[in-house]
Nucleic acid binder design. Structure first.
Length: 300
RNA sequence: GGUCGCGUGGCCGAGUGGUUAGGCAUAGGUCUGCAAAACCUGCUACAGCAGUUCGAACCUGCUCGCGACCU
C-alpha cells in the first residue's frame, strides 16, 4: 500500500493559510485537515476567522466544527483522532493538506505523544487549591519530592507545566519524566513541510485589518451569544477574552479592539518561534502560490 | 511682558543627592492532554547647557518646549 502524503502548512495567524491551503488542495484534489485549535468548535466563527461556507464547500475539511466549545479536545486527542482518520481503511484519499497554527498539535501528530494519562479534573482542582493557598513554591516542592529529574528541567515558574507533571504523577504513581521519550510512534506518512511568513510589518498590518474585519463581522455579537461559555477553555483565547471583559464593563470597545490586535500580534510572534525551531519547514511568502505549488509538485 | 506649574526610555508611570523601580509595547526564546494557553530572557531613560557636591533625574542658574493664570 502506498504511503499517504501529508502537505503540512503552518504559519502565524492572519498570514493567509486558508487561501493557500485551499489552492493547494484543489490543485492536488486533496482533502484538508485543520489543526487549528480554535476552529474545531462549532460555536467559534468570527473570532477564529474560520473558513467561510464557500471555502468549506470548495474542499472537504476535517476538524472544522467537529467539537463544541464545552467539550475538551487536547493536542493528544487531536493526534489520535487525526491518525484514526488517516488510517481508516475505507479512506481512499491519498493526499491531505494539513493546515493550522498550533505547533504542538503538529508535533503531537508527527512525533507522537508519549503514553501519558489524560487530564483529571479532580486532581487539577486539588492542585489549583494547593496553588491558591500556598503558592507556586508548594507545587515546586511537591514536584521536587516526586520527580527531581523533571524538576531540574521544567520552567519552575510555569504553573501549568508543574500541575500537569504532578497530575501525571498522582494518576500513575510514577515520575512524570519516566514517561518521556518513550514514544514508539510510527508515522506512516510522507510529510511535505511548508511554512508561511511575511515581513513583520505586513503581517502585523494584516492582523490589525483582520481584527477590524472581525468587528465589522459581528465579533461582539458572537461573544454576547457565547457569554455563558466564557469559562470554557476554548474561549480563553485572544479575541474572545478581551471582548468578554469589555462586555462586562472592564474597558471600552476601542480599548478591547486595541488589546485584541496587540495580543494577536504577540501570539503570531510565539507561533513563529515555534515553527522556526522545526528545521523541516520550507518557508514561503503566502502570496507566492506558484512557488508553493511547484514545491508541492516536486515532492513525491 | 509677568507669575506659577510641568518636561523621566516607543508609551504609561514611580522615584526629591549615593541600587537596574515597575507595567505595557518591541525583540528573542521555552514548550509532551489548558497551547489563540502558560512561562523565560534582553532593552539603563531622566529636555539642553553650565554650576554646587566626593557623588545629581533629584539642589542652583540660564536656555528651550508645554500648560495655566495675571497685566
Amino acid at each position: 500500500m502506498n504511503k499517504k502524503i501529508l502537505i503540512i502548512i503552518c504559519g502565524p495567524t492572519a498570514v493567509g493559510k486558508t487561501d493557500v491551503s485551499i489552492a493547494v488542495a484543489k490543485h492536488l484534489g486533496a482533502e484538508i485537515i485543520s489543526f487549528d485549535s480554535r476552529q474545531f468548535f462549532v460555536e467559534t466563527n468570527i473570532g477564529t476567522a474560520k473558513p467561510d461556507a464557500e471555502q468549506l464547500a470548495a474542499v472537504k475539511h476535517h476538524f472544522i466544527n467537529s467539537h463544541h466549545v464545552w467539550e475538551h479536545f487536547s493536542a493528544g486527542e487531536f493526534a489520535d483522532a487525526c491518525l484514526a482518520l488517516l488510517n481508516a481503511s475505507e479512506n481512499k484519499q491519498q493526499q491531505f493538506v494539513m493546515v493550522g497554527g498550533s505547533g504542538l498539535y503538529i508535533d503531537a501528530l508527527v512525533n507522537g505523544m508519549d503514553d501519558l494519562p489524560g487530564k483529571d479534573e479532580p486532581i487539577r482542582q486539588q492542585l489549583d487549591q494547593l496553588y491558591d493557598e500556598k503558592g507556586i513554591g508548594a507545587l515546586q516542592e511537591k514536584l521536587k519530592a516526586f520527580d527531581e529529574k523533571y524538576y531540574n528541567t521544567v520552567d519552575l515558574n510555569n504553573k501549568q507545566r508543574l500541575m500537569r507533571a504532578l497530575e501525571v504523577i498522582q494518576l500513575s504513581g510514577k515520575p512524570y519524566s519516566s514517561f518521556l521519550g518513550n514514544s514508539q510512534h510510527a508515522f506512516n506518512f510522507i510529510p511535505v513541510y511548508i511554512a508561511l511568513d511575511l515581513n513583520r510589518d505586513e503581517l502585523y498590518k494584516r492582523i490589525n485589518n483582520r481584527v477590524d474585519t472581525m468587528m465589522q463581522g459581528g465579533l461582539k455579537e458572537e461573544c454576547i451569544r457565547l457569554m455563558e461559555y466564557k469559562t470554557c477553555n476554548a474561549l480563553k483565547t485572544v479575541g474572545y477574552k478581551e471582548m468578554f471583559e469589555h462586555i462586562e464593563g472592564k474597558y471600552s470597545l476601542d480599548e478591547a479592539v486595541t488589546l485584541i490586535k496587540q495580543h494577536t500580534r504577540n501570539y503570531a510572534k510565539r507561533q513563529l518561534t515555534w515553527f522556526r525551531k522545526n528545521k523541516n519547514f520550507k518557508w514561503f511568502n503566502p502570496d507566492d502560490l506558484n512557488a508553493i505549488i511547484s514545491h508541492v509538485d516536486s515532492n513525491p
